[in-house]
């Protein structure tokens, strides 16, 4: 049964990489059920991330957000800050797609704080870039400028010319 769970997960990932997002979700849901059966929180967390990602490409941003929230909740339980940061970043981007810029900014800020705690300059740069865009969309150019400047500073520091 445990091997079956891993096989479902691998099949889900393979379909995902082939661009078969509906099939991917079918397999990842099977993977999720087996992870729950075993109380395997790490596998459950991975399944939620994979399900969130697949729903982005199915255009179901609302469903993706719910899966990413489950990922976020479990990453905190598992005390995995890198995954927590990634979940916040995914939620920020998903709420941007949902045109809910206030909530997008909330998650990008949470991502920024964790990236700073982890001394992840690339993550911090991405968070600032996203926050600049969110504040432009909210009609707050002064705050957008603050984050754009920070984004420029970090990009120069890490040598990201793009």
């Amino acid at each position: 049964r445990a091997a079956q769970g891993r096989a479902y997960g691998n099949l889900g990932n393979t379909h995902y990489l082939l661009g078969n997002f509906t099939e991917a979700t079918t397999f990842h849901k099977e993977r999720l059920a087996i992870a729950k059966e075993f109380g395997d929180k790490a596998a459950e967390r991975r399944a939620y991330s994979n399900l969130g990602n697949a729903h982005i490409f199915l255009g179901r941003f609302d469903v993706a957000a719910e899966y990413y929230k489950k990922t976020l909740q479990l990453s905190r339980q598992l005390r995995d800050q890198a995954v927590e940061a990634q979940a916040c970043y995914s939620l920020g981007n998903t709420y941007t797609l949902l045109q809910d810029y206030e909530r997008a900014a909330e998650y990008h800020l949470r991502h920024l704080v964790i990236a700073q705690e982890l001394a992840d300059r690339v993550g911090e740069g991405r968070a600032c870039w996203s926050l600049g865009n969110a504040y432009v969309s909210m009609g707050s150019p002064a705050q957008a400028l603050t984050f754009a400047k920070k984004h420029l500073q970090i990009s120069q520091e890490i040598g990201d010319r793009n």
């Binding site: 997960g9 691998n10 990932n13 991975r46 981007n93 865009n133």
Partner: peptide, 26 residues
């Protein structure tokens, strides 16, 4: 589902490009 109406947001576009190849492996 909802349409990808915000593809002009560079940071989101970049994230989605990375996401296409992002799988949580077993």
């Amino acid at each position: 589902g909802q349409r990808l109406h915000l593809m002009q947001v560079d940071s989101v576009q970049r994230w989605m490009e990375d996401l296409k190849l992002m799988t949580e492996c077993e």
